[in-house]
């Protein structure tokens, strides 16, 4: 059932221009950044050779591209998640799903999965961009994998938070702006922390946790944070939809 819903989500997403426009825009921006970093790398390459243990292309080009990719995903998430529940309500199609012999968990997970498939497509394009560097040198595949893993987790966090906010309203525009606000808030929350390593606000910042993956470090604390974040918002979404039947 989860797959049935996920497949429907993707079919509707890709039958509108929205998905294609977003994919094209993200790719355009990331390629631009990629080329800019490649250019810088080629300029400073002679100096890098002189250093004892010089940073490779993966650190100087791919890591910054992935860090920008996370920000791009943060920007496109609200547009995509607003559709998930709020638009179904607005179009009165939610009744079809609720009247069907499936549970709310199926609905929530199906929609989440559908969005994750779309995000995976974006991530695959970024990986393809990175792999193109193999034409001119070698890559640090460990660092690349850690980045891919990290961006996958952080996009799952974006999706689950957006899905929950979409459950709260019947207006796609409100869901979108609410999600954008919440995600930006979680991005910049650590600004007040300054240099303090163990501050609470820093521990809550989404991009801060992603930073470790970006540097090639997979920390259990970050893993725990991401998986808790995803689980909490998925469970809240299911509960919210279930509660709606009671409140009416």
């Amino acid at each position: 059932m989860i797959f049935t819903i996920a497949r429907k989500e993707l079919k509707i997403l890709f039958s509108s221009p929205l998905a294609w426009i977003l994919l094209a825009l993200v790719q355009l921006v990331l390629t631009w950044i990629f080329l800019a970093h490649l250019d810088t790398f080629l300029q400073i390459q002679p100096q890098l050779v002189a250093i004892a243990n010089p940073p490779g292309v993966t650190e100087t080009i791919i890591a910054p591209v992935f860090s920008m990719a996370a920000v791009m995903l943060l920007m496109v998430t609200p547009v995509l998640t607003a559709r998930l529940i709020a638009e179904e309500r607005r179009n009165h199609t939610m009744t079809l799903l609720i009247s069907a012999p499936i549970s709310m968990t199926d609905i929530v997970l199906g929609k989440f999965l559908g969005l994750m498939v779309f995000f995976s497509a974006v991530i695959t394009l970024v990986v393809a961009l990175s792999i193109s560097l193999l034409a001119g040198g070698t890559l640090d595949f460990g660092l690349l994998l850690s980045n891919v893993f990290g961006i996958f987790l952080i996009s799952a966090c974006f999706a689950s938070l957006g899905l929950y906010i979409s459950c709260l309203t019947a207006h796609p525009a409100i869901a979108a702006s609410g999600t954008l606000g919440a995600l930006l808030g979680l991005w910049v929350i650590d600004i007040g922390a300054g240099d303090e390593k163990e501050s609470i606000t820093r521990n809550f910042s989404l991009l801060e946790h992603y930073g470790n993956f970006n540097r090639g470090m997979i920390d259990t604390f970050d893993l725990a944070y991401f998986s808790l974040f995803i689980t909490v918002f998925l469970v809240l979404s299911v509960r919210r939809l279930d509660g709606e039947r009671l409140r009416g």
Binding site: I5, K11, I12, S15, T93
Partner: peptide, 25 residues
């Protein structure tokens, strides 16, 4: 169940939509 407003996905074709409704049931 047919609610007051038919729950239709306007982006799908009739056959695609009914296929989905069938799977859902």
């Amino acid at each position: 169940y047919l609610p007051e407003t038919p729950p239709l996905y306007r982006e799908l074709t009739v056959r695609e939509y009914l296929h989905f409704a069938g799977r859902l049931h």
